[in-house]
Amino acid sequence: MKIQFTLNGRQEVLHISSDVPLLQLLTEYSGISSIRPGCDRGRCGNCVVLVNDLPLLSCLVPAFDIRGRQIVTFERFSQTRDFTEIQKGFTQADALPCSFCFASKSMLTHGIISGNTSPQPEEILQAFSLNACTCLEPSRIVQGVQQAGTLRGRRRRHGRRK
């Protein structure tokens, strides 16, 4: 099946089986190395990508479902200002995720603070409940996300004033 989509701002066309999971499509056919294949069944939460700016588990998205959609992986996301804020927020909260889950955790954080820059702890923990890596204590994750949210909120307010 011909699959046309945008990957990290670039148009891609692949001829591939329609039901190949996006995870496999990205790692085997598009040379993406930031995704960590784990359980392949939506349980470990380490394969998060942004699909039309929404964080999704790439192992649960079939190839036919990404036609015409915009996929952003950590390779691209890590070059954005949104990421810099998240990184800064986590550093300020003294919460440093390990290199294995950093990509997924930062994109999950982006998903939370895009909608609400002052998320409540329950909302944060719910969003991270499928992220199986235990490199950070839950309280640290909450602090990191809230700090990142504060920075995002500040930027939005400044942006509006200008």
């Binding site: 964080p55 999704l56 649960l60 969003a127």
Partner: peptide
């Protein structure tokens, strides 16, 4: 609805 899963699931 929230108990179904985190937003990575409920977005889909």
């Amino acid at each position: 609805l929230r108990s179904v899963g985190p937003p990575t699931i409920t977005n889909q």
